[in-house]
Design a protein around this nucleic acid. Structure first.
Lengths: 348, 348
DNA sequence: GTGAAAGCGCTAACAT
DNA sequence: ATGTTAGCGCTTTCAC
């Protein structure tokens, strides 16, 4: 133990001295913006490794002048919907982060593959510095990812993903497990003989329905633990609110023994008023939307399986921006966010 | 819409110009380190308000030279215990935050009021820039708080608090609600005629037991929803591990109808091996300790009511340090952290 | 291909 | 009581 081991954090300056170059050169190597000899590169990288250098983020943020254009290729939304929360998280992250981020939204219609193609094309034309996206149209996303790989534009998946692509990051839940958890909570109090699964008309027969993994988790859990329980599906149409109650009432007449209802999308709130009039029915939903919280508060819904949507978006943007800025990929490529169980008693 | 409304964030420089003083003076006013006239002060504060100024945290962190000594007056702990997680959170926050924080630990024995008094006296002698503390010995804490108020040393409560004191911040749970939630989860599957409440010998008759509010929440919930259910208490002694199982077995012989067990402290893990041999018994515990998670994983415990302990500590230190540094008190004095419900299916 | 130097916005010691 | 100034560690332009 000598005085010398007062751990002093290495700076670009130390790296420069160690590598026998100037700070400017160090920076060029670290950010890969060309114009350095392979030899210097090696010396710099070696020094970085030896001294365990990593940039001081405060200094980096402070001095960054270049604004980074981040393209966000995500589903369009109305206020109060799931993707509105993601959008808000992204915007807040941009404001709070202090990197010089300029987000550009490319919002496509989830039911319209052409709208996705349009957005993707515009995005590519705009040549952003990075892309954040999710997966609705799987094949299209794969196609796009190849192009981004070629052009060396980094991208991150949020909320869901395609495995095996060149994305730098994924932040999201494990949808299959969330489905299982929902099924568990629904069947906690008693063993139902029949269960109603409420789905959105839009998703009927849609190929690449992004809710499929969660639904599968739900069904698998029921199948395993309650092999004799029948799960019946009813479709409702969010775009025709007045048709929802009749649809549900009709369903109940067909299946009068159903005492357990679930959605595997984020729209249990659409069922809330029906549930209010059928207090004997247990219900479980997903996602931390204000409307869903209200349904929970009102006692229509027993449990909500969710995650901090806005925080998830913030984390994604934060990790992505940091990687873009430092050039160092995130320590973990996949960030699975924690699943929360929400009940009247642990609201807020 | 003119070119001029390109929203440019105001800096100290803008404030200085606006108030007709220099940047140094602005800084003195903002950080209240004396030597300015009431008149200048008014002009500066006015300018701050008018321009909606708030310091750029990156720049502040980067340029801060003074190290702030933060005294942490908390219970002593062994590895793996609740307060070890708090401690870790504090240390990580100090490392990550980038303010120039120097934490000093004053760890007292929760069972020994004199040890608390000692720590408090040493702390006062050391004249820290800020204090983070929790409440075990209520009257002593009140006494200390008065002195801190006098000396204008800011302090923050973590994990629990005394209301009505001059603390700048509280970060913690709502213990009463957490107790209710635990009782709810314990009685979810069926309506028990008898419940066993496992307590720590140390707390027997201890005045100012910090677990009391949570226990009360637990008991009130049972009293309200299951008025005919008897709650029996059994004390175990963590310092004599070999005595725990016999104590529990003895308890079960006295109360053979007990099928539901809970602790309202963080030590359900002490009951785990007993529970393993009595698979018919439901159990609920509190707090996100590794040992408790293990018990959950092993199926000994049904649910854990908890919060992100480490994150809570980080948040506390973060908000506190930011306030100390900017001089602006936190927007909300009380930060109640979210209560998590943990089950085998949403572990990690 | 590389180095020098001017900031980013704030802090705090040092003048006055 | 107030102003001046030298950094904090990094980015980026400009010259060589």
């Amino acid at each position: 133990m000598t005085m010398a081991d007062t751990k002093t954090i290495p700076t670009v300056y130390d790296i420069a001295r160690e590598a026998g170059v100037s700070r400017g050169t160090v920076d060029r190597v670290l950010h890969r913006r060309g114009r350095f000899s392979p030899d210097t590169e090696a010396r710099v990288l070696d020094a970085v490794k030896r001294l365990g250098y990593s940039a001081n983020l405060n200094a980096a943020k402070l001095s960054t002048r270049k604004t980074r254009n981040i393209a966000c290729l995500l589903p369009s939304f109305s206020e109060g919907e799931y993707w509105a929360y993601i959008n808000r998280g992204i915007m807040e992250a941009v404001d709070e982060l202090g990197f010089n981020l300029a987000p550009a939204m490319y919002l496509y219609d989830q039911t319209d593959i052409d709208s996705f193609r349009d957005c993707a094309a515009r995005l590519l034309e705009d040549a952003p510095d990075g892309v954040i996206l999710n997966v609705v149209f799987r094949e299209e996303v794969i196609r796009l990812s190849k192009i981004l790989d070629e052009r060396r534009i980094p991208y991150a998946f949020i909320d869901n993903k395609v495995d095996g692509l060149g994305n730098m990051l994924y932040v999201g839940i494990d949808p299959y497990r969330s489905g299982q958890l929902g099924a568990f909570l629904l069947t906690l109090q008693d063993c139902p003989s029949e269960i109603g699964l409420v789905r959105i008309l839009r998703d009927k027969g849609r190929k690449g329905d992004p809710n499929e993994p969660r639904r599968q988790g739900f069904l698998d859990y029921i199948g395993t633990h309650f092999p004799d329980t029948a799960v019946h599906t009813v479709f409702i149409d969010p775009s025709a609110p007045e048709s929802i109650e009749p649809a549900l009432e009709g369903f109940m007449q067909e299946h009068p023994d159903v005492r357990h209802l679930a959605t595997t999308n984020s729209r249990i709130h659409l069922v809330a008023s029906f549930l209010k009039r059928h207090p004997g029915i247990h219900a479980v939903g997903f996602d931390h939307l204000d409307r869903n919280l209200q349904a929970l508060k009102d006692g229509c819904v027993d449990f909500l399986v969710t995650h901090r949507i806005k925080d998830m978006a913030k984390e994604c943007m934060g990790l992505f921006a940091e990687s873009l800025s430092t050039g160092v990929p995130p320590s973990e490529k996949n960030h699975f966010v924690h699943l929360d169980i929400l009940h009247r008693l642990n609201l807020e």
